[in-house]
Design a protein around this nucleic acid. Structure first.
Length: 934
RNA sequence: AGUCGCGUAGCUCAGUGGUAGAGCACCUCCUUGACAUGGAGGUGGUCGGUGGUUCGAUCCCACUCGCGACUACCA
């Protein structure tokens, strides 16, 4: 093995081997375990959020697969209607063409062509992460069989009256020229104005002042509303006003919605261009005057001189004319929330159109109940509140989009305007007994992308057919996703799953946090702080990173700032850390689903961890290889028994952690076992056995076997988190383990498999807990640490072997010292350990205390008395402080009376020990001081 | 306005009703035969503030300050 672990080449080679083996597909007769990959957009590239979530899903998948579950991780991509159409339209734009020039059919051909060529970037990138999805089942939301499911759902919902077509106000994107759902509108606070406009009374003198943020919609006003209790306006109720610039007259009406305290207390009502006004218009039978064209220019309902003006230009002109007419009372600066399309950023216009809607209440109710009853569980639990909140206030879902790329709505119109819904035209004709020569035209619109996403948990498994995978894997086990799509996706899958499968789509929903940069800022192109997970894996030069971050900026003026910040943070670019280090970082930060600030120091730490594991394995292989048959009689040392016992505890911890989705606990348990117990202590403890002249062949064999089998099982235990390095090492280790499989005391329960991912996950119960070994090794560790502390603080060279004297050694201390002399002397760098008898005179020494036992390191030639005096003073001060606290506690009668007896007893024992230690330490300090002449 | 969350070492984060933890950074010593991506030792925190419950609060409760996210509304 090479001296250092280098991930690059190993990772690609290993992944190819995995994928071609077919081992990602479900196998075995075990219980089903299934995760649906949230299908990334075909237009997408892998970002940190994906990498994070995919790591967790892969960990769960590999863990269950190794535990014998029949495991499916279902991959696929989403056609991403708007996003994809925009990509291709932009391409066309660059060629000076528009989709309308091509026509629907040619345009769609173009999109499919694009998809075939560039649509799989993200799935290629996923492979670098080691994702063990079943690629043979890869799906796309517009695959024919999935599209069939979409049509089926639409038709069935329509038959039940749960899908209807209606003319009402929708969120209209005037750039995309399509309706969008409430969720696709993002409202941000922006600076605007509040215009106070005088509407003159139609008869007599006087006027009413209305306050508005959108003066241009004045042209569509059909009333002015005031609060019915507003005394100021009582006399005006029912009176007519002259609507400026139009000459129309409109009534003053009363409605409880109006807040008398806001603005002037009078509101202009534009039913065709505001959601609240629309509702009020319905209540009062007001006319709806649409004043905009689909691209938000004024239409024929506006006075001639305004027609064709863009809404923002119209605003200027209208305000100017009002001002000229003396109708503007004042203009105040005003902050308001401006609704913008999440794709285009265009200001969304409430717009009257015919659209298809899903009647949501009957679907939401069972979905709400399923979570309330615990049939689907949110992890962490508090996200269920967010879910409830939304589900209880949910409104009908506008599912039609005026786009070309997507699932075309299965509805047909005849020339008379009648609507027929069916699976296809033939079915429609048959169902409605339409004359063969009746002309039918299919609806031009497509469905919201999320409509098909909502079916993902069963459409990918073959629905509407009752397939074997559908029966086996639905409901799926867990959905791993971000809180940002609880509404978009999770809730809708719940509704559709319950409706069409009669059961929830997943048992658990694990909600992850967001990956942010190291300052806690959201990663974005404009901030120039995006980190590409592949750059963390493979590394990237500063020049390439700069190019990546500063090219194609929407706001080019940010370039210098980004350039500077990037140079500062990555003066040498990004070093390659490897996939396993990145994955382990994600896992170790995936706790209670809070946002994660991505820190490179952490990745570096786990890169080092990979190297540690690599070198630990190197040691084991060097120790075991070429040592002949290991299956003969073997005797286990205390260290062998100890490491096995610790491994059992670690596995138990990993098991309970992963069951609760506490990836951080699992990662920490394995990290600590691997580094602190296996490498730091166990490997060192094997050296006296393996290199000692007094040890027997059986003892050496016992240790070699333990080294090998624990390492092999440790690789299995780590594999779900760091699949590449473990596979690489395991392939070298397993040939040595295989011959031992028959030996009774061998704990490797691996069946012979080609790949580590097919091996069995080690179970805690396979390994013997050994309290005696734990107690003795724990004593040894304290002993050794105490000596090392003296050595460290006194700067005694590691190569220097020193003598050690024991004072006040009890039976057990003497016995253990003798029994484990080989370990103690090696790990603490001792040449001899000599217990003193009660009367023996001790030389001047540095001291450490281990309970009642005192360790003495003779100072002669080694230790400066002054330094030792300082060290002792520090220890005593620390002890004194603890003694003070304990005395205070135990002196409190209430504490002694009320606290549990074992807590009181423990404190009393601790106090006694500290006081006795301090007595010895104080005496020692006196002697050292005299020696130092101070 | 409503809902949820966060405030613990210089930084990023775990954690617990009974002696405060990790990684990174920092200081000292060490190239010893797995590993300098390393080893040994060490420095560093009145756990945001105030009050309450309790024998005991960093943890539970109330209030408060600061930060964040989401939902709704804002004419």
């Amino acid at each position: 093995m090479e001296k250092a672990y280098s991930p690059g080449e190993i990772e690609t080679r290993t992944y190819q081997r995995w994928e071609s083996s077919g081992a990602f597909a479900p196998s075995g007769e075990g219980e089903a375990y299934c995760i649906m990959l949230p299908p990334p957009n075909v237009t997408g590239t892998l970002h940190m959020g994906h990498a994070f979530q995919h790591t967790l899903m892969d960990t769960l998948t590999r863990w269950h697969r190794m535990r014998g579950y029949s495991t499916l991780w279902q991959p696929g991509t989403d056609h991403a209607g708007i996003a994809t159409q925009m990509v291709v339209e932009r391409q066309l734009g660059a060629e000076g063409k528009h989709r309308l020039d091509l026509g629907r059919e040619k345009f769609l051909e173009r999109v499919w062509k694009w998809k075939a060529e560039s649509g799989s970037t993200i799935t290629r990138q996923m492979r670098r992460l080691g994702t063990s999805v079943d690629w043979s089942r890869d799906k796309f939301t517009m695959d024919p069989e999935l599209s069939r499911g979409v049509t089926e759902v639409f038709v069935r919902l329509h038959e039940e009256g749960l899908i209807y077509r209606g003319k009402r106000l929708v969120n209209w994107d005037p750039v995309l020229l399509t309706a969008v759902s409430d969720l696709e509108v993002l409202s941000e606070e922006e600076n605007g104005s509040l215009w106070h406009i005088r509407y003159p009374l139609a008869q007599g003198a006087g006027h009413v002042v209305v306050a508005t943020t959108r003066p241009e919609t004045l042209l569509g006003d059909t009333a002015v509303a005031v609060n019915p209790d507003d005394q100021r306006y009582q006399p005006l109720l029912g009176k007519q006003l002259t609507l400026p610039l139009t000459g129309r007259t409109i009534p003053v009406i009363a409605d409880g919605y109006v807040d008398a305290a806001f603005g002037s207390g009078a509101v202009k009502i534009t039913p065709a261009h505001d959601f609240n006004d629309y509702e009020m218009g319905l209540r009062h039978n007001l006319a709806q005057i649409n004043i905009f064209t689909p691209d938000a220019k004024l239409n024929e309902n506006a006075p001639e001189r305004f027609r064709g003006l863009d809404r923002f230009d119209a605003r200027k002109q209208i305000v100017a004319e009002l001002e000229a007419a003396g109708l503007i009372e004042k203009i105040e600066p005003h902050k308001l929330k401006v609704p913008r399309g999440d794709r285009t950023g265009a200001v969304i216009e409430p717009y009257l159109t015919d659209q298809w809607y899903v009647k949501i209440a009957p679907l939401a109710e069972p979905a709400l109940k399923a979570v309330e009853e615990g049939r689907t569980r949110f992890v962490p639990e508090n996200w269920s509140k967010t879910y409830y909140e939304w589900m209880r206030n949910i409104k009908d879902w506008c599912v039609s989009r005026q786009l070309w790329w997507g699932h075309r709505i299965p509805a047909w119109y005849d020339d008379a305007g009648s609507i027929y819904v069916g699976r296809d035209e033939a079915e429609v004709r048959k169902k409605h007994s339409l004359a063969p020569d009746l002309r039918l035209r299919q609806d031009d619109d497509v469905l919201d992308t999320w409509f098909s996403s909502a079916l993902w948990p069963f459409s990918t498994l073959g629905w509407p057919d009752t397939t074997a995978p559908l029966k086996k894997f639905y409901p799926t086990s867990v959905l791993v996703t971000g809180f940002d799509i609880i509404f978009f996706w999770v809730a809708r899958m719940m509704m559709m799953g319950l409706k069409f499968m009669g059961d929830v789509p997943f048992r658990d929903v694990y909600i992850t946090g967001l990956i942010r940069d190291e300052n806690g800022d959201k990663m974005s192109k404009a901030k120039g702080n995006i980190i590409d997970p592949l750059d963390v894996i493979d590394g990237i030069s500063l020049a390439d990173l700069l190019a990546k971050r500063t090219s194609g900026l929407m706001q080019p003026h940010l370039k210098d700032k980004i350039d500077k910040a990037t140079r500062k943070q990555f003066p040498d670019g990004i070093a390659p850390f490897g996939t396993d280090a990145l994955r382990f970082t994600f896992a170790s930060l995936a706790g209670a689903s809070r946002d994660i600030n991505f820190e490179f120091g952490r990745v570096g730490g786990y890169r080092n961890f990979c190297n540690k594991l690599w070198n630990g394995a190197r040691f084991v292989l060097m120790t075991v290889e070429g040592q002949g048959d290991l299956s003969g009689a073997a005797e286990l040392s205390i260290a062998d028994r100890w490491i096995v016992s610790r491994f059992a505890a670690t596995l138990a911890q990993v098991d309970s952690s992963l069951k609760e989705y506490r990836f951080d606990f699992a990662a920490t348990a394995l990290y600590e076992f691997t580094w602190y117990e296996f490498c730091d202590w166990y490997l060192e403890l094997t050296k006296p056995v393996l290199q000692g002249e007094a040890t027997t062949e059986a003892q050496k064999r016992g240790t070699r076997r333990t080294l090998l089998t624990v390492l092999e099982a440790l690789l299995r235990a780590l594999h779900p988190l760091m699949p590449f390095i473990t596979e690489e090492i395991w392939q070298r280790v397993i040939p040595l383990v295989a011959p031992l499989a028959a030996a009774a005391d061998v704990r490797a329960t691996t069946s012979r498999t080609e790949l580590l991912m097919q091996a069995r996950y080690p179970a805690s119960t396979d390994y013997a807990a050994d309290s005696q070994a734990e107690a003795e090794v724990s004593w040894m560790k304290q002993f050794i640490l105490a000596v090392r502390q003296i050595r460290g603080e006194m700067d005694i060279a590691p190569s220097r072997k020193i003598p050690l004297l024991l004072q006040n050694a009890g039976e057990r201390d003497r016995a253990l010292t003798q029994k484990h002399f080989a370990y103690l002397s090696r790990l603490a760098g001792l040449e001899a350990i000599t217990p003193l008898s009660a009367g023996d005179a001790a030389p001047e020494s540095a001291t450490a205390m281990l309970g009642d036992l005192t360790l003495l390191v003779p100072m002669a030639g080694l230790i400066d008395p002054k330094a030792e005096a300082e060290r002792l003073t520090k220890r005593i001060a620390k002890n004194e402080s603890d003694v003070g606290k304990l005395k205070g506690k135990l002196g409190n009668a209430s504490f002694v009376k009320h606290a549990p007896p074992d807590v009181v007893a423990a404190d009393q024992a601790r106090l006694a020990e500290l006081e006795s230690q301090n007595l010895s330490l104080a005496a020692q300090l006196e002697r050292v001081r005299r020696l130092g002449g101070t």
